[in-house]
Nucleic acid binder design. Sequence first.
DNA 1: AATATCAGGTTGTCAGACAACTGGTGACCA
DNA 2: TGGTCACCAGTTGTCTGACAACCTGATATT
Lengths: 243, 243
Amino acid sequence: MKVKSLDRSPSLPEEIVASLTSALHAGELRPGDRLPSEQALANEFGVARTVVREAISQLKYDGVVQSRVGVGAFIAQPQERTAFRISPACFQKRKELLKLLRLRNGVVIEFAADAALARSKRDIARMEAILKEMREAIADSEHGAERHFEAERQLIHVIAKMADNEHALNFIVMIDGQIAEKLRSVAVKNTKATELAAVAIEEQARLVEAIKHGDPVAARDKARKHYDNAARRLADRADLADV
Amino acid sequence: MKVKSLDRSPSLPEEIVASLTSALHAGELRPGDRLPSEQALANEFGVARTVVREAISQLKYDGVVQSRVGVGAFIAQPQERTAFRISPACFQKRKELLKLLRLRNGVVIEFAADAALARSKRDIARMEAILKEMREAIADSEHGAERHFEAERQLIHVIAKMADNEHALNFIVMIDGQIAEKLRSVAVKNTKATELAAVAIEEQARLVEAIKHGDPVAARDKARKHYDNAARRLADRADLADV
DNA sequence: AATATCAGGTTGTCAGACAACTGGTGACCA
DNA sequence: TGGTCACCAGTTGTCTGACAACCTGATATT
C-alpha cells in the first residue's frame, strides 16, 4: 500500500561527497590538505567533471573545503565551518541517536527558561491545547501512541518558538525533524502506552505550568526533569534497534 | 602587512543561493513550491545551467529543496532540513549576533554538567593551564586582551570535548568559530581589560572547580553564571557595531 | 644575481548534447 | 461514451569539450 518505492539510488555527487567526508572523518584527509584536482577526481570516480564540481561545491558550502582558482581545493580548519550537519550515518548507531537527542533536549531545556520570560496568551493556549490532545490520545487505543508522539513534538516547537531566538528554533526544528523520523516507529510500536504516557503528560503539564507563571528557573527545572526522563525511558527500551 | 586582499568576489553559484534563500526567507518561495526549471533560472540570472545546478545542489545538500527527475525541484518542509547553517547575514545585526551567542552559551552551559561527569585528569590539567594563561594575560598590556579572548574560547572547546558528545562539540566549534571572528575585534579593542577580566577569570575558575569536583549541578550553575554575565557585559558595550 | 617571460596546471564558467524520466494530451478502440 | 495506450514536450542527471582567469614554478634574459 504505502511502500512508496524507496529506491533512492544516490546521485553521483552525493556519493562523492560521502566518499570525501568519510575520508575526512577517517583522518585520511586533514585540514590544510589539498584535494586532487577536479579532473583527477573525475577520472578516479569515473564521472564527469561537472559531477565532481557539484560535490565539491556542496563541501564548500559548508566551509569544509575552500578553493582558490589556479591553485586547488583545500580542507579547511574545523573552526571555518559554517554549517552543522546531520548525516544519515548518525543514525546507524543507537548511541549516536541518543547523543543527538541529548543535544536537542539540552537546547530545549535551556530555552524553556527564555520561553517562560517571553510567553504570550496565545502561546499558553496553544500549549494547553497540546496537553489536552495528549490526554485525549491516551484513550485512543489505535493511534494514541502516534498522536502522543506528535503532540510532544509540537510542544517542543511551541516552546522553541516562544523563546524568541530564531536560530535556536531553526536548530531545534532541524534536529527534531531528523531524529523524529527515526524515533517515530520505535515510539509507536510496542508502546504499553497508557501508564508511561500518563507520567510523561504530568511532567509536561508541570513544565507548561511553570512557563505559564513566567518562572524561568522552574521552567528549566521542569523541562530538565521531563526531557531527561524521556530520554532515559527511550534508552531503556530494548527495541531501539542497533545496527 | 596582513591585508590579505579580501576581494571575495562572490562566485555565481553563491549569489544564486543567496538570492534563492532570501526569496525563501522573504516568503516569496514557500514549502511545496516548485522552483523554475534550471534552464529558466539560468536565463533569468544570465548564467550557464551548470552554475544553477551547483547552486541548487547546495540547497539540496541542506534538504532545503528536493528534486525529482522529469518533474522539477521543490522547496522542502522545514522539518526536512538536514543542516543548521549560519549565513553571513546573521552578523549584520547586533541582535542576531547576541542570539547566536545565547545559543552557543546555552549548549555550553548544558554540557558543562556532562563534562563534570566525564572529566579526566588530563582535561582538568588542561583547564587549569588555560586559567593560568588567563591570569598571565592580565599582565600583558599589549596582547593581553587577545590572549584572554583566545583562552576563553579554548576553555569552551575543552569543556565541549569533555562532554563526550561529538555532535555537541561540532556544534559548539562551528558556532564559536563563526562568532569569534566577529567578536574578536570588539573584545580586544577598547578593553579596560584588567578589572573586567579579573571578574571573568574568577567566574571561570569556579566553573573549573565544579567540573574538577565532578559536580554536574554546580558546574551547570557556575557555567550559567559566567556565560550569562559575559553575554551581558558584551551586550552592554557601546562599541558593538550595529550595521 | 635579479628580473622578466613563459608554460602547464587548476578553478570558474559557458555551450551543447543525450539519456532517463514524468505528466498530460490526444488518438484509437471497444 | 468510456477506457487504454502511444506519444510528446518538458525536466533533471550526466557527459563532453572549450575557454578565460589565475597561480606556481621553471626558464630565459639582462
